[in-house]
């Protein structure tokens, strides 16, 4: 098939970007979307032009490195599919595809379709872990976890940190990402001791990074390639609220003093 591609080209963080149009022939329906871009890049390189920079690594939908917006939809038209697993049979001959990077103030564009998602790591640094040093745990089966709770924790833990939720959100909120990690740990007994502090600290960092608030549009859930649900945001908000009401630093201080 033959495609017309309008791709966002931007040299670096401070440069102004613009769309450029490319025409590509001989695209096979069996190619993945990224393989189609490989073909384009080989062509550009052979013509002495600079290839399009895009992020990718595992190309099997799990590392979370890839992702850009295709015709307004993060990761393109297939539900629950990262762009590396999206195949060209989802498109037809003569299609015009507009490719642009994740758009969010907290995700500055580094080059072309590559953005800086280090804000996600900084949110995790504020509490997306259980404080347990290597070597100190008891036997694994000493902690019993009901199967359905464990399954729910796994549903939340399946997040790949790609950033599609942010790109799809009109507020550029990272609530789904943050809520998924908070939920994963809040649903497990191991996560209880730090539960309230975690929700508070991670959400504060979320706001500091410049992500917007959640206004329950639900676009993130629709865009998420791993099917992370909005209920994770509700759980996060509940934990945050509880933290504010029942676990404020004042209470802690007075307990210590008493």
């Amino acid at each position: 098939m033959k495609l017309t591609l309008e791709i966002w080209r931007q040299a670096n963080k401070s440069a102004a970007g613009a769309f450029e149009t490319y025409s590509l022939e001989g695209v096979s329906e069996h190619m993945s979307f990224l393989e189609m871009l490989d073909v384009l890049n080989e062509k550009l390189t052979s013509e002495g032009k600079e290839p399009v920079a895009f992020e990718h690594d595992c190309r099997e939908g799990i590392c979370g490195a890839c992702g850009f917006v295709i015709n307004g939809r993060p990761h393109g038209p297939q539900p629950k599919t990262t762009v590396c697993q999206l195949h060209m049979r989802s498109f037809k001959d003569g299609d015009r595809l507009v490719l642009e990077p994740w758009r969010a103030a907290a995700f500055p564009v580094i080059k072309d379709l590559v953005v800086d998602r280090s804000a996600f790591d900084r949110i995790i640094q504020k509490g997306g872990f259980i404080s347990v040093n290597t070597g100190s745990p008891q036997d694994a089966n000493a902690i019993l976890v009901a199967k359905n709770e464990s399954d729910k924790a796994m549903d939340a833990a399946a997040c790949i940190g790609c950033g599609a939720c942010v790109a799809s959100c009109p507020n550029a909120s990272a609530s789904l990402f943050t809520g998924a990690k908070i939920s994963h740990l809040a649903l497990l007994p191991q996560g209880q001791p730090e539960r309230w502090k975690r929700a508070e600290a991670m959400l504060e960092q979320h706001d500091l990074e410049g992500f917007g608030p959640c206004s329950q549009h639900g676009e993130c859930e629709a865009a998420c390639p791993k099917g992370i649900t909005l209920s994770n945001i509700a759980r996060m908000n509940g934990d945050y609220l509880f933290s504010q009401l029942a676990y404020s630093p004042r209470v802690g201080a007075s307990t210590e003093g008493g």
Binding site: A140, A157, H184
Partner: peptide, 18 residues
């Protein structure tokens, strides 16, 4: 033991064991 303590959601039986 280490991974479980970190919150790695390993598959479990209905009784809650791994």
């Amino acid at each position: 033991d280490q991974a479980t303590a970190q919150g790695v959601p390993f598959a479990r039986e209905y009784g809650g064991t791994l």
